[in-house]
Structure formats: C-alpha cells, structure tokens
C-alpha cells in the first residue's frame, strides 16, 4: 500500500501552510524561466514540465545576503546587537533531488569544528519535500555522482509523480511523515521513478586526475571562454563560499565565487590564482578532490545548473568529461 496525494490537494496543503505562517518556497515561473521562490499563491506552484529551476534551493538555508550581527559605534565604545534570528518554519516544496541532496553535504562544512548556528537554525526549521524528476536534459548528470531522479538523500518526503496529476508520497523522516499526516489517501499503486541520465564520467577518475595534475594545459584551455562571473557558483546547490563585509552598521555575509578575480587577491597585490584557468581548476578540485578528502563526499549533486546558467556554456560537465577522457588516455 502507498500514500498518494492529488496535485489539487497538494496545492491546498501548500495554501494551508502559507496561511499558518509557514514560509513555503517552491518552483515557479519568473523572469522567463523557472525559479525557486517564496510561494505567494499556491496556484503558481509548478509540479511538472520543468527540468531544474535556474537557481538552487540553497538560498533558503544559506541566503545570498545575511546579517551576522549589527553594531552601534558610540564614541569610543561599540555595542554589538545580535542578528534577529528567525525561527519561522519553512517548507521547501517540490525541490529536485539534486537540490535536497546538497543539504547533507553542506551540513559538513557548516559544522566541522565550529557550528554555524545561523545555518543550523534554518536547517532545523525546514522540511524538505522533494519532487522526483520525470525527465532530464543534456546538462543533468546526477547518476554520475551517485544520485538519481528519485534519490531520497536530504529529503523529508519524496513525491513521485503518478499518472493523472497524482503523486505517491514517500515519507523519509519523521518530520516529513508528520507534515503529511492525515493529508494523503492510500492506494495500491506504486510510482515508478523515471530513468536518469546515462553516467557521463567517473568521479574517482576526476579526483585522481585533478590531484595529480595541478599544472596541466586542460585547465587553461577550458577556461578560455570563461568570462569570470559567478553564475555557476551562485546557482550551484553546493557552492558555499562567502564574503564578509560591513554595510550600514551591520556585518553581512554574502555569496562569493571562486571565479571572481578578487576572490584570493592579497592586500599586497599578489594573487595565488591569477588567471581564469587556476580559478576553474580550484572549482573542480574543491568539488571532486578537496571536499571528498575532507568530508568523504563529492561537493556536487549533478544538477547541471552551472552549465545551464553559464553564459559561455561551460560549467563543470564539459571539463569533467574532458578530464575523464584525459585520464583514460594511454600514458
């Protein structure tokens, strides 16, 4: 027996949550594309006919700009004012498995040694309702990094599309179970997950190659077309690099990107990563070598957003395929 819910009832449920003051974020149409945005009207909720939103769901746990604390300078003295932390419950509704899988991965970095309470507090107050994929595009490569169209990693609930506008509701955690308790019907149908993309490369080969080839022409060659913007990092579910600045009496953390030329620039003017090639290398190394070495997990969920959003059509995938090819060349 399985639990099911119709899309109408799901929308009603979303409307109820909004009514109760829950912050609901979900894929919607905006700016000529699909984006994860706070849901204002449950009719705007998208449940099919999109591959992956142009942004990632990380911004609801790790916002693009966040006040760490405020301060007031009073003569020679300073008063610190703690950031007004919010305990508002939130539901990420209809996020793709590749977005949900990013959260357990990000938990490592925000909690090794010292815990980032700002992230953790949002994490605790968030329930993640994953919508399994029914299609993929040429940029998707979840199956290459150990995930898939119906992966439960990071999900509290997994919705798998059935025919006739209905979803099978698979509760993964207690949090998810209680969210949908009493809201579903039972049925004896079981949803079949769609087939994922064919695996495109082996992460181990990438790790081996990038660890052994810090200096290699492939980095510079692939970075030729890179314009040095942060579109890849900002739309990536796992990229988490940030900057800290003072603005208007607050200390604020903002998303940053390893592709910006200022990212590693020293005050002396020296820059350890002086060109786009070394910055692209850092992005690959961080995801496929540094992070796995430290935390045992690849810092990539194969969502394909970096390629989808790259103005120059790059992203990690073409480079990863090229590396795999390079790794298998006879020595």
């Amino acid at each position: 027996m399985s639990e099911i819910i119709s899309s109408d009832n799901l929308r009603k449920l979303a409307a109820e949550w909004i009514e109760q003051g829950v912050r609901v974020a979900a894929p919607q149409h905006a700016g000529g594309r699909v984006l994860y945005l706070p849901l204002k009207n449950s009719a705007d909720l998208l449940l099919d006919a999109f591959i992956h939103p142009a942004n990632s769901a990380k911004e609801f746990l790790f916002p693009k700009s966040e006040t760490l604390y405020a301060y007031r300078v009073e003569g020679q003295d300073v008063k610190l004012v703690e950031a007004p932390g919010t305990e508002t419950p939130q539901v990420l509704l209809g996020v793709r498995p590749c977005d949900a899988a990013a959260f357990p991965i990000l938990d490592h970095i925000f909690n090794w040694d010292c815990a980032d309470e700002l992230y953790n507090r949002r994490r605790r107050n968030t329930t993640i309702v994953v919508l399994a994929c029914s299609a993929h595009d040429a940029n998707c490569f979840c199956t290459s990094v150990g995930l898939g169209p119906a992966s439960e990693r990071g999900a509290d609930v997994l919705l798998v599309p059935l025919t006739n506008d209905t979803f099978e509701v698979r509760s993964v955690t207690e949090k998810g179970r209680s969210l949908f308790a009493g809201k579903t019907q039972t049925d004896n149908v079981a949803a079949m997950a769609a087939a994922g993309p064919e695996p495109r490369f082996a992460p181990d080969a990438v790790r081996k190659f990038s660890a052994a080839n810090f200096e290699h022409p492939i980095w510079g060659e692939h970075a030729l077309a890179c314009v040095g913007c942060g579109a890849c990092a900002h739309t990536c579910p796992t990229c988490h690099c940030f900057d800290i600045v003072d603005e208007h009496g607050e200390r604020v953390r903002n998303w940053d990107s390893c592709q910006f030329s200022l990212f590693t620039l020293h005050a002396s003017g020296h820059n350890p990563r002086p060109d786009q090639g070394s910055r692209q290398r850092q992005r690959i190394l961080h995801k496929f070598s540094i992070y796995p070495d430290k935390f045992g997990e690849i810092l990539c969920t194969g969502c394909g957003n970096c390629t989808r959003n790259c103005p120059a059509g790059l992203g990690v995938l073409p480079l990863l395929i090229a590396i795999e090819h390079e790794e298998h060349l006879p020595a």
Binding site: V227, C229, H234
Partner: peptide, 11 residues
C-alpha cells in the same frame, strides 16, 4: 532576484 554574480558585467 539578483545575486550579484556579475555575469551582466563580465559578458
């Protein structure tokens, strides 16, 4: 919606 990725500037 702007995240200041500066893609507009870089291209």
């Amino acid at each position: 919606r702007c995240t200041r990725c500066y893609a507009c500037r870089q291209v």
